[in-house]
Amino acid sequence: SLSVDNKKFWATVESSEHSFEVPIYAETLDEALELAEWQYVPAGFEVTRVRPCVAP
C-alpha cells in the first residue's frame, strides 16, 4: 500500500522574543526536524527542539 504512517511531533520554534511549539507530521524524528527547519528557518525562526508527541 502507499499509505504513509505519519506521526505527530512537537517542534519548539524560537524567535528573538518568543518561543512556541508547533505540531509537525512526519514519519521519523529526522524528517520532522527537516520539515520544521524548512518551514520556519526562512521566516527567521530557530528550531531548537523536536520531540515525539506522547499520547496521554
Rank of each mutant, 00 (worst) to 15 (best):
E34A: 15
N6E: 07
V50K: 00
K7S: 05
S3A: 12
W38T: 14
P23E: 13
F20H: 04
Q39V: 13
E14K: 14
E31V: 05
P52E: 14
L2S: 12
F45G: 03
V41R: 07
E37N: 12
L33V: 09
L29T: 04
E27S: 14
L29M: 09
C53S: 11
K8C: 15
S3V: 12
A11W: 03
T28L: 02
V50E: 01
A11E: 01
V13D: 00
L35E: 04
A43D: 11
A32P: 00
S19V: 11
S16Q: 10
A55T: 12
Y40K: 03
S15Y: 06
S15I: 07
E27C: 07
P23Y: 09
A32N: 00
E46W: 10
S16H: 10
E21K: 05
R51K: 06
F20R: 03
V50M: 06
L33F: 13
W38H: 15
S16L: 09
P52G: 07
I24L: 04
A36L: 06
K8I: 14
E37W: 12
E37K: 15
E31N: 06
F9Y: 10
V22E: 01
Q39L: 15
K8Y: 13
V22T: 04
A26C: 05
E17L: 10
Q39G: 05
S3K: 13
L2H: 13
S1R: 10
F9C: 15
W38A: 15
E31Q: 13
F20Q: 03
V41A: 12
P23H: 08
V47E: 02
I24G: 00
V47D: 02
R49V: 08
E21L: 07
V47F: 00
G44Y: 02
A43H: 13
K8W: 15
D30E: 14
L29C: 15
E34L: 14
Y40M: 03
Y25V: 04
E17M: 10
A26G: 03
C53Y: 05
S16W: 09
A11C: 10
S19R: 12
V54W: 10
A43G: 07
P42Q: 08
S16T: 09
E14G: 05
E17K: 10
F20N: 01
Q39P: 04
N6T: 14
W10I: 13
A32M: 02
A26H: 03
E27N: 14
L29K: 04
E46P: 03
Y40P: 04
D30R: 13
P52F: 08
V22W: 03
C53M: 06
N6R: 14
L29P: 05
S16F: 11
P56W: 07
V4A: 11
A55S: 12
F20G: 01
A36K: 01
A43F: 13
L29D: 03
S15P: 01
P52K: 07
P42R: 07
V41W: 11
T48Q: 03
I24E: 00
E46C: 06
N6F: 13
S19C: 10
P23V: 15
T12L: 11
K7G: 05
V4T: 12
Y40Q: 04
G44N: 02
E27I: 07
I24R: 01
V4H: 14
S16M: 09
E27V: 11
L35M: 08
E17G: 13
Y25M: 06
D5T: 14
T48H: 03
S19T: 11
P52Q: 10
E14M: 12
K8G: 05
Q39S: 06
K7L: 08
A36C: 07
T28G: 05
W38V: 14
E31C: 06
E37A: 06
R51N: 04
P42W: 08
V47L: 03
N6K: 15
S16D: 08
L2Q: 11
G44Q: 01
L29H: 05
A26M: 02
T12G: 02
V54P: 11
E21W: 06
F20P: 00
L33C: 06
V47M: 00
R49Q: 13
L33N: 04
E31I: 07
Q39K: 10
T28K: 03
T28E: 02
E21V: 09
V47I: 08
L33E: 05
L33M: 11
F20W: 08
K7D: 03
T12M: 07
F9R: 00
F9W: 13
A26D: 00
A32S: 02
V4L: 10
A43T: 05
P42K: 09
Y40A: 04
A26F: 02
V47K: 01
L29Q: 06
L33R: 15
E14P: 00
P23N: 03
S15C: 10
Q39A: 10
V54K: 10
A26Y: 02
P52M: 11
Q39N: 05
S3D: 09
Y40C: 04
P42E: 12
S1F: 10
F45M: 06
